[in-house]
């Protein structure tokens, strides 16, 4: 279980105070207006932002003292996930070993991961030679292969067109069937993942305003605010 308790972060012009619980193995969709603190929430879990107070644990392990590299989380950003001078296979391999000195087994693991996101034979391709959707698939493959039980997807498909976006979300859903992972994913529109997500969290003004089953959240009094946030972005 991922437990976030009153994690406070302050900037001169923004204050965040998060409390959220996500069951292990669940897919939690994070929705809310842009600038409301969705990304900051994920960055905090990944360790890029450090809260001044509060508690953050995953399956009982305290995450706060851990460096980002030591946390059980893998992250995928909206853009710039891949290093342009490395091939697809090498970019995936970074998730296994940053030195890129892979054993035979690890090499086949990376190739399998590419295969599992539908990119068989793309091993030697450079990011510049792939489409936006293919690049995000490589990033997903890397998150998958890293073996980390917590996967953070920060608007991973926002720059893709709706049909492609749907494909990618189906892929994420398939991913978690293959391996038990807990996923937090920020999304723009509820349609993107409402039927797939076990949980939905509405984040605005640096707070988790509500969290629960997607149908409950979307059917609640928050519906107009969610609609406004969606049309706003």
């Amino acid at each position: 279980m991922l437990v976030i308790e009153n994690c406070r972060l302050t900037w001169p012009d923004f204050t965040a105070d998060y409390s959220l619980t996500v069951e292990t193995g669940n897919l939690c969709a994070v929705i809310g207006p842009s600038g409301g603190g969705k990304t900051t929430l994920l960055h905090m879990i990944a360790g890029f932002e450090r809260p001044e107070s509060g508690a953050l644990t995953f399956n009982g392990q305290d995450l706060l003292p851990l460096e980002p590299a030591k946390r059980p989380a893998a992250i995928v950003f909206q853009d710039h996930n891949l290093f342009p001078h490395l091939s697809a296979a090498q970019n995936v391999a970074l998730g296994l070993r940053p030195s890129l000195r892979l054993t035979r087994d690890e090499q086949s693991l990376a190739a399998e991961a590419l295969d599992s996101v539908g990119l068989k034979g793309f091993d030697e391709r450079r990011p510049g030679e792939m489409s936006g959707g293919q690049r995000q698939r490589v990033a997903l493959a890397r998150a998958l292969v890293s073996g980390r039980p917590l996967i953070l997807l920060d608007e991973p498909f926002s720059s893709l067109d709706p049909a492609l976006r749907r494909d990618m979300i189906l892929l994420v859903d398939e991913m978690r069937r293959r391996r038990p992972v807990t996923i937090l994913m920020t999304i723009h529109t509820p349609e993107d993942a409402a039927d797939m997500a076990d949980q939905m969290a509405f984040v605005a003004d640096g707070r988790v305003v509500a969290s629960g089953r997607p149908t409950d959240i979307l059917g609640s009094a928050l519906a107009p605010r969610i609609a406004a946030a969606v049309s706003d972005s």
Partner: peptide
Amino acid sequence: PAEHWRLATAFGFTPFQIFRHLDWP
């Protein structure tokens, strides 16, 4: 891009790996 720095942090790149993958290109 800032994302590359976050990735470098998340992967725990050594200084040499940072030079190789971020500065050298």
